[in-house]
């Protein structure tokens, strides 16, 4: 072969293009849309239930139920906090676990993975793109809950200044800012699950198996977190500090558990991210 031909130029925006394609593909799956639909429905159910229960003027919850629920009747903005507290233990991580677990295993079982790899997307780049997309899904899923809750709260209940857990009053605008901050913290809390799900996704060529394993872990870990004998293990479970986001509604904010949560999520991302990378870059793709 004397025909010396230069290697084709790599388009500088390529990684961005792949990420965009990945986002489009993920958010056009009916499964993704169904999960987001369920998440959007939770605040509607909670809001309507509170509204019906308090129709006679009594206050909601009576001390039980998700955090902040007793405040919802006074201020619709509290529905945002209530809905996030209600979905964070299960619905949100389940949705993230399904999307992350399916990310590579689903492509492997459909056979599309081999065509992405011979395109050639590059294994590390593809994994990074998948990672970024799952993170984006964490954010979108959380925002869907928050926005749905805000809308329902505004329709069913009065809005206005609000009282923090510490008893101080803050303006509605500041309350909105706190709500946004809380949504971001909740989204970040899901990173550990996302990393775990993506790692599981590199282990198998069956999308269903990966999704089932990830969701199984999600059910098991909070149970472990309740067993007193496993006390030493608790600070390392990804769900341990999840509800610390409520500390953002204190005045002043308690940062202690919040920072522990962020640190723990970063550790999960690093550990399982590296494990996924080691596995995926060395794997035989035969499906």
């Amino acid at each position: 072969m004397s025909r010396a031909e230069a290697v084709r130029k790599v388009s500088p925006l390529w990684t961005f293009g792949l990420f965009r394609s990945e986002l489009l593909t993920t958010f056009r799956r009916w499964r993704t849309l169904a999960l987001l639909g369920v998440l959007a429905a939770v605040p509607v159910l909670v809001g309507v239930a509170v509204r019906i229960e308090t129709g006679d003027g009594s206050s909601a919850g009576g001390g039980g139920g998700p955090a902040f629920i007793s405040q919802v009747t006074n201020n619709g903005l509290f529905l945002v906090f209530t809905a996030l507290a209600a979905t964070l233990p299960f619905f949100l991580p389940m949705a993230v676990g399904v999307v992350a677990g399916d990310a590579l295993a689903g492509e492997a079982s459909a056979g599309t993975l081999r065509y992405l790899l011979v395109a050639p997307a590059g294994r590390s780049r593809l994994l990074l793109t998948k990672y970024a997309t799952v993170m984006a899904f964490c954010l979108v899923a959380t925002l869907v809950v928050a926005l749905s809750a805000l809308t329902v709260g505004a329709v069913l209940f009065p809005l206005g200044d609000l009282t923090t857990i510490s008893g101080t009053r803050i303006s509605f605008t500041e309350g909105l800012a706190r709500a946004l901050l809380i949504a971001l913290v909740v989204a970040v809390s899901l990173i550990g699950v996302a990393a775990l799900g993506l790692f599981v996704s590199t282990l198998t060529s069956s999308g269903i198996a990966a999704m089932a394993t990830t969701v199984g872990l999600l059910i098991t870990v909070p149970i472990l977190d309740q067993i007193p004998q496993l006390h030493a293990l608790h600070p390392y479970l990804f769900s341990h500090y999840w509800l610390s986001f409520a500390d953002l509604m204190r005045e002043p904010v308690h940062w202690d558990d919040l920072t522990k949560n962020l640190g723990l999520q970063a550790v999960y991302a690093a550990v399982f991210g590296s494990a996924a990378w080691a596995r995926f870059t060395a794997k035989d793709i035969t499906a």
Binding site: V7, R8, K9, V10, S11, L13, W14, G17, L18, R20, S21, L24, T25, Y115, L116, A119, P120, A121, G122, L126
Partner: peptide, 13 residues
């Protein structure tokens, strides 16, 4: 096809 083409680093968008 658009998706597979996006996976090729040398493909001009």
């Amino acid at each position: 096809l658009l998706r597979y083409d996006a996976a090729d680093p040398t493909a001009d968008p």
